[in-house]
């Protein structure tokens, strides 16, 4: 007969089984295929050659073209994360401290998720495009004589990414601020700290885990994106995921595309592992709670 302990030990696994099965079938199995593919060889004509060849890896790791785009991708992800942190923290602080309107503000924060990410990204064309709202307004006011091309550069890619990722940052920071006891700041005030000093010494350090969780999400999602640079970037603004897309979909070079995508996965995976080591995954889970 099963004892209480063994039943309790078994229960989480039973509850997790459907999700774990889905993850295994939809994520791990394809990933294994990609890993295998990355060691195959592509031929100009006919089928890829199966086997264990390191050629793709050698190309992906040594070609300065890939390296430059990888560094560019990481830079764009870093700038996006920074902008999200700077813009998101005050917003999260405001929501956490507003008592009456908190529910409405949180709802507003969720609102963008009801519209497809692609549509939200494309909406910038109507705002900043040559015949977009911004140019029309400037023309009408006579500030400019000719419409200016504001789209299709790195700045608009970052703008689009910030637009996409800001809610993730705000939510994560909000959750950690929410968990900080209000009396801590009051105690600091009573001991002689101004509001700003109390914030710097007490609230900010205690909310760092949330900031780190939001930062990780923003960085990983930004570094893996290919839609935003596709829609809002110029020809030279391709990010790393665009290369993977290009290799696999356009050139049908599955082996090289596999190697490239695994490379990105390894870098982002290492980042997540670092985060997990220093902060812990439970913080992110809280951000979604």
């Amino acid at each position: 007969m099963a004892t209480v302990e063994t039943r309790e030990a078994r229960q989480p696994w039973i509850l997790l089984a459907p999700a774990l099965t889905a993850v295994a079938l939809l994520l791990l199995v394809p990933l294994a295929f990609i890993a295998v593919y990355s060691f195959w060889l592509r031929t100009a004509t006919g089928a890829d050659i199966a086997g264990f060849h390191t050629d793709n890896w050698a190309e992906a790791l040594s070609d300065p073209f890939y390296r430059d785009i990888l560094l560019g991708t990481l830079r764009i992800a870093a700038i996006t994360t920074l902008v999200c942190a700077l813009a998101g923290y005050p917003a999260a602080y405001f929501i956490a401290r507003s008592k009456a309107n908190r529910a409405i503000l949180l709802l507003l924060l969720m609102l963008p998720f009801w519209v497809s990410y692609i549509i939200r990204t494309m909406s910038w064309i109507n705002i900043l495009g040559v015949s977009g709202a911004f140019n029309s307004a400037l023309l009408a006011m006579g500030v400019i004589g000719q419409p200016i091309q504001m789209l299709y550069n790195e700045a608009t890619v970052i703008l689009g990414l910030v637009h996409f990722l800001l809610p993730f940052m705000v939510l994560n920071v909000y959750v950690s601020l929410e968990g900080i006891d209000e009396t801590l700041e009051q105690a600091a005030n009573s001991l002689g700290a101004t509001r700003w000093q109390a914030f710097r010494e007490v609230t900010l350090p205690l909310s760092l885990p949330g900031l780190a969780a939001g930062g990780l999400l923003c960085f990983v999602l930004a570094a893996g994106t290919y839609i935003t640079p596709l829609v809002l970037g110029g020809p030279t603004d391709a990010m790393f995921a665009n290369l993977v897309f290009e290799a696999i979909i356009t050139q049908l070079d599955w082996p090289l595309g596999s190697a490239l995508s695994l490379m990105l996965l390894a870098i982002l995976g290492a980042l997540v592992a670092l985060y997990n080591h220093f902060v812990g995954m439970s913080q992110i889970a809280r951000g979604f709670g």
């Binding site: 009396t183 105690a187 001991l191 700290a193």
Partner: peptide
Amino acid sequence: VPIHKRNLGLVFQNYALFPH
């Protein structure tokens, strides 16, 4: 006079110690 200039000692019900 704002609280940080009043020179008062405050003890809260939940202690409000700085956890970090």
